[in-house]
């Protein structure tokens, strides 16, 4: 989606800054924001660019580096961490063959750490873009990843 189209949907008020950035970033296959885009948003809302950057650099959802089509966020806070099923971080890093913060070569997945996802009753849990997967086992993780890979090839 073009940035202009996203901007059109919002009044020119600073209060919509985060909503605009969230919507626009989501619409991009690379799930990231560029300097020029930030500048355009700053101009639209009539706020300093330094302000927009301050916001983008503060919230963990935003990235100024290109990311994969699917962002996998795993939680490692206490309820997930002590869950006896699997170590999600290590399992994912092995399955994807990347470290946290990296993107797979095929640009399909980016692996990120997220603070508690609020799915402690289904720990361990991950979020892939806007979908939650709970009570994960290694087997289940493999199936989920395969599904996304298949979806991509289809």
């Amino acid at each position: 989606m073009e940035l202009e189209k996203v901007l059109e949907r919002f009044p020119k008020e600073q209060t919509y800054l985060i909503e605009i950035l969230l919507d626009y970033q989501k619409s991009k296959p690379t799930q990231h924001l560029t300097e020029n885009e930030l500048k355009e948003v700053a101009n639209y809302l009539d706020v300093p660019e330094s302000h927009v950057f301050s916001v983008v650099s503060f919230y963990s959802f935003f990235s100024m580096e290109p990311r994969g089509k699917y962002i996998i966020q795993y939680c490692r806070d206490v309820p997930c961490h002590i869950s006896d099923l699997i170590n999600v971080k290590e399992t994912l890093e092995t399955l994807l063959d990347i470290k946290t913060g990296e993107t797979t070569e095929d640009q399909l997945f980016t692996l990120e750490y997220s603070s508690c996802l609020g799915q402690c009753d289904g720990a361990p849990a991950i979020r892939i873009n806007d979908k939650i997967y709970r009570n994960l086992t290694k087997n289940k993780l493999q199936m989920v990843l395969a599904e996304y890979r298949g979806d991509h090839h289809a």
Binding site: D77, C116, G118
Partner: peptide, 11 residues
Amino acid sequence: DEGEPGNFKDR
């Protein structure tokens, strides 16, 4: 903004 680890009742 229920972000406190271990809380999910608002969700």
